[in-house]
C-alpha cells in the first residue's frame, strides 16, 4: 500500500470509504495498537479546533506515534510572512505525515501538490483537517461511519438534513460522500440558507432523490433514518439582520421524536448552539456525542491508510 494524501471527500471512491469503515471498526474493537511506533505526525492548525485536533492527536497517541505541531498560527513564522509552501517544506523534513487545518480554501490541495514534487519532498502525505469553508473529509467519513454503525448498513437510508444547507461544508460533503449508497435526502432550510444549486445539480446528475422543505415537521422526522442537525453559523453572515431572523428557526425538541422510527439517530457535526434542545440528550436516539467519539477510530483508519500501513 502506498502513501496517499486525503484532501477532499470528492476524491474518495466507494471502495476507499468502505475500507476506511472496516478499518475503523477494527480500531473501535482494539484502539491501542502500536502501528505508528517510531512515526512523527505534525498537526499544523492554522485556525482553532477542538474536536478535530484532539481526536487526531488521540488517534496518533493510541497508535504509538508522536505528535509535533501548533494550534495557533500566531506563534509560527507565518506571522513573519513565511509562505505556506516554505512551512510545509520545512515540516516535511521533520514529520512522516502532516495533518493540517487552514483558514484558506484550497490550502490542503496546495500542500499535497508541494509534497508531491520529488525534488523537495520525502513523500509525506497530507490529511486535510478542514480548509476554510471548503472540505473536511475526516468529518464526513466519521458521519458516514456513524450512519453505518447505527443503522447496520449504508444503502437506502432516508437522511434529513436541517439548518444551514447553504454554507455548511459538512452538509455538502455528506451529500458527496453518501451518493454511493443510494440515499434519499430531505433538505430543511429557510430560504436564505437553502441548498445551493450546485449540490442540487449534483444530486440530479447522480440520480439521488431529494425533497426540499422550509418547515421542520414531525411528519418528515417520522420518515427519517438519520436526522442530521446543523448549526446556523453566525460567522458566515455579512447581514446580521438576516442572521437574527434565521438563527433559531429550527429547534429539535424531545417531544418531536414521539412518532419517529426506532432506528432514527440524531447526528450533528458539533458544536451545537440552540438547534437541539437539551432535553433531547436523554433520548437513546441522540447520537451526536457518540458520533464525535467515532472520530478517533475513523482518524486512526485515515492515518494508517495515508501512511500505507495495513491495519
Amino acid at each position: 500500500m502506498g502513501k496517499k494524501s486525503l484532501v477532499s471527500i470528492d476524491e474518495c471512491s466507494k471502495e476507499y470509504i468502505l475500507e476506511i469503515l472496516d478499518c475503523a471498526r477494527r480500531f473501535e474493537q482494539e484502539p491501542n495498537r502500536k502501528l505508528l511506533e517510531g512515526k512523527v505526525v505534525a498537526t499544523l492548525f492554522f485556525e482553532p479546533s477542538t474536536r478535530t485536533r484532539l481526536s487526531f492527536e488521540t488517534a496518533v497517541n493510541r497508535l504509538g506515534g508522536r505528535v509535533i505541531g501548533f494550534q495557533d498560527a500566531s506563534t509560527t513564522s507565518s506571522t513573519k510572512g513565511e509562505t505556506l509552501r516554505d512551512t510545509i517544506l520545512m515540516v516535511n523534513n521533520y514529520a512522516d505525515l502532516i495533518i493540517m487545518r487552514h483558514y484558506l480554501e484550497g490550502a490542503a490541495k496546495y500542500a499535497s501538490e508541494i509534497l508531491s514534487i520529488p525534488e523537495f519532498s520525502r513523500g509525506v502525505p497530507v490529511i486535510n483537517a478542514g480548509d476554510g469553508a471548503n472540505q473536511h473529509p475526516s468529518q464526513t467519513l466519521l458521519d458516514i461511519y456513524s450512519i453505518w454503525k447505527t443503522q447496520g448498513k449504508l444503502t437506502d437510508q432516508v437522511v434529513t438534513i436541517v439548518g444551514d444547507l447553504k454554507y455548511g461544508r459538512a452538509v455538502h460533503s455528506l451529500i458527496a460522500g453518501l451518493w454511493h449508497f443510494n440515499p434519499t435526502f430531505h433538505f430543511i432550510a429557510p430560504n436564505e440558507l437553502k441548498l445551493p444549486d450546485e449540490q442540487k445539480s449534483f444530486c440530479d446528475e447522480k440520480g439521488i432523490q431529494y425533497y426540499e422543505h422550509t418547515e421542520f415537521t414531525e411528519e418528515i422526522i417520522n420518515r427519517s433514518d438519520i436526522l442530521y442537525m446543523t448549526r446556523i453559523q453566525r460567522e458566515r453572515f455579512t447581514d446580521m439582520e438576516v442572521y437574527e431572523r434565521v438563527k433559531n428557526v429550527y429547534v429539535l425538541k424531545l417531544d418531536m421524536l414521539n412518532g419517529s422510527k426506532d432506528n432514527l439517530r440524531i447526528l450533528h457535526p458539533l458544536p451545537r448552539v440552540t438547534e437541539i434542545a437539551s432535553d433531547v440528550d436523554s433520548s437513546p436516539k441522540a447520537y451526536f456525542i457518540h458520533q464525535a467519539g467515532n472520530g478517533i477510530f475513523i482518524r486512526q483508519a485515515i492515518l494508517c491508510k495515508a501512511l500505507g500501513i495495513n491495519a
Binding site: 505556506l84 480554501e105 484550497g106 469553508a133
Partner: peptide
Amino acid sequence: TNPRCITNNEPM
C-alpha cells in the same frame, strides 16, 4: 474571485 482562496494568498 474568492479572497479566501489559497491562490490569492500564496505566490502560486
